[in-house]
Design a protein around this nucleic acid. Structure first.
Lengths: 157, 157
DNA sequence: TTATAATTATAGCAATGGCTATATTATACG
DNA sequence: CGTATAATATAGCCATTGCTATAATTATAA
């Protein structure tokens, strides 16, 4: 590459790419928060509360790691900690959890419908969910709907 | 949750979940390496070489950040640095890049075929690509193939 | 050939997300 | 009503991925 190469890069073209990487980095920073609120919602639903030890076990990390991350979630007003009574979601946290769980379920359902074995779909959905835009979600839903129609047609023949 | 709750958690059920989170954390650690080798391959293809400044511009990060990451890639034997001449992929790096680019392209193609607007598909694919297993890739391919058949049938009517 | 410009490296800072080991505190049970 | 146990917090470590500012080195062009 000659001296002029840096300037020669067509930024009209590559700006989208930069944007893609930035968006992805941004998503990556949200992943952990999303995983936590989602899991906390699950635990509260199942057991009535979410304790650090259980969060740690589910995530496969050590309890002090959870302790530290929960502080961040408190700072971000996602949760409230009641000493020795577990953590609870704020309105903000609840909303995020609801959104994440729906999106997660949809991605998993979509992958399964596409023929991915359910256990693999579970794992992949865990990673993918944080990176699908609303528009992709919309496309997934449309696909599922069209499949449903196909299924109905088939069964009514 | 009562005293016994931690033990009450059914580990047969949650082990899969733990595995999912672990797998995802593992994937997250590979993301950066994959992004780099993929981008380096692209730059070499386009310009004959990949320099730090260009990598930095494309990724939207500062050059010292790239400098530091490249050291890691050298340690992992993914690239070779030729002083003031840019970086080049080793065999290992080339293989990874090839795999990533194929997977990336497939994800993007898949999303587009599903009706996701191309610019959104580009961005989403950037995030999703690192989290799709071979089995999901396989399902994506199958979908594309079936669509092709449909297209052909339609056009031949 | 030497000065300038481009390229890369380094220093030093901050935030994040892990870990182990070890306090501390609340709850529950005897 | 104390005390053992469970739950949480803290201390202190490390690696990673960012950043800015600045130094050092190489290439290129005058």
């Amino acid at each position: 590459m000659k001296k002029t190469t840096a300037k020669a890069l067509k930024f009209n073209e590559s700006e989208l790419q930069v944007h893609g990487f930035r968006q992805t980095r941004h998503n990556r920073r949200l992943e952990l928060v999303e995983d936590y609120v989602e899991l906390i919602a699950d635990l509260i639903e199942k057991y009535g509360e979410a304790r650090q030890v259980d969060i740690a076990k589910e995530l496969g990390v050590a309890q002090p790691t959870v302790s530290k991350t929960l502080k961040r979630l408190v700072a971000e007003k996602m949760i409230i900690q009641r000493p020795y009574r577990g953590v609870f979601l704020t309105d903000k946290g609840s909303k995020l959890a609801k959104y994440c769980r729906q999106r997660h379920a949809l991605v998993e359902t979509f992958l399964t419908a596409l023929g991915v074995p359910s256990e693999v779909a579970k794992i992949d959905a865990e990673g993918i969910e944080h990176h699908v835009s609303d528009q992709t979600i919309f496309a997934f839903k449309r696909f599922l709907k069209s499949r449903q129609v196909t299924e109905i047609r088939k069964s009514s023949v």
